[in-house]
Design a protein around this nucleic acid. Sequence first.
DNA 1: ATTGACTATCTTGTATACAAGTGTTATTAT
DNA 2: ATAATAACACTTGTATACAAGATAGTCAAT
Lengths: 227, 227
Amino acid sequence: MQKNPTMNIVYDNVKHDIIYMILKPNDLISEIEISKKYNVSRTPVRDAFKKLVSEDLLEVRPQRGTFVSKIDLDAINDIMFMRDKIEVSIVRNLVNRISDIQMLTLLSILKKQEKLLDVHNITSEVSELFLSLDNEFHETIFSFEGKTRVWELLSNIQVHYLRFRVFIDHCDHQILTGIYNDHLAIFECLKFKDISKLEDIYSKHLYNGVKNQTIKIFENADYFKNF
Amino acid sequence: MQKNPTMNIVYDNVKHDIIYMILKPNDLISEIEISKKYNVSRTPVRDAFKKLVSEDLLEVRPQRGTFVSKIDLDAINDIMFMRDKIEVSIVRNLVNRISDIQMLTLLSILKKQEKLLDVHNITSEVSELFLSLDNEFHETIFSFEGKTRVWELLSNIQVHYLRFRVFIDHCDHQILTGIYNDHLAIFECLKFKDISKLEDIYSKHLYNGVKNQTIKIFENADYFKNF
DNA sequence: ATTGACTATCTTGTATACAAGTGTTATTAT
DNA sequence: ATAATAACACTTGTATACAAGATAGTCAAT
């Protein structure tokens, strides 16, 4: 059941470029420009654009152009709220039934992250890899509770949060270390079944990405909605 | 900033027809068929279809046709899980700060629902109206906590739950009365600030729509995924 | 009667021509 | 010089022709 290969190639590439800030907010990308880049006609490009518009990553202004959407901090706040409530509830159930093998699975992800942090000069490839391991860590926890689909449903919404994180965390060794330490703390809480501390860390972990980043936001105010 | 009027007309109409089971699961609808119906070309129809595919309401099988998706009970279960956790958290915050005027707003919605239940023979229009008041009741609660966008983000996911509810509740006076009573109980709990009972009712209220409906589901097994 | 190939006719995928609106730039009139 | 206007070069919206694949029915060969 293959579906629409060329449309998906365009979709995946453009989406990646938006999330990883190769295409920046407010950038104009025309259907023809992209169709030339990928050697296809406008139709599959339009199909891909329509999908990206439905995810609020693109904004089409008829007869004007198609623009990369601004980062919406209010939306990110609401997304974090949702993730917090859902994920804490999942972890609360998980803590009493997590198996040793599952603990090892989480540990192996942490080890991979640790290894990436060994290098002092963080390249953008390493940065991208680290953040995808961050997602893997959380997705794995969801999967332990049979909530993989919930994670996927959230993922469609979460792209804005991810794009913001890429913008903030990009190649910043200190921030990435902070994320790693949070994960380590979560792992320890699961180990010792410390529910209340777990809830505490979790909430902070999600919001940490946003705190103390006002300078970087103000410096690029035009990337953000309502600024 | 008007955008794509004809595409939106097609989108809104087809979406309505799917949710309200005028177009049933597994139904084949071709792009040409719909384009003739609305006197437009294939392009805006394709645009609308792409949007509906991204909401899992349509499934495109290339060179075969476009089909109305089956109802996915597993997905509905996950959606209820998410709504439960998020909405209970919102209500928990709301209960201590809800104002008299806000209570009146909720009451007025309840009165409208009560009025609709006066009629014994529930038409499909009344049924549709009742369910939209149900949504309004919950959306209003979200708005009281400044979480309107959270409701909207959930709404994109919730369409499957809504379609299922339409299928189950359609013109059933008893079920609709049950929903009304749940709302009434929620209202009373808000009035007397009974948090624990509130959480209890809320969880049940969401899941009530699914319970005891096995007969109706088995009778239309082909409407459902994994059956 | 059964099997197999062929054909006619569906479907969506793709490419492209044209329409309509926007913004900029050049031109013209004052 | 300046301001109004016209022409042009873009954009996305729309319509449509053709390609490629899937399916069902026909028809022939065995």
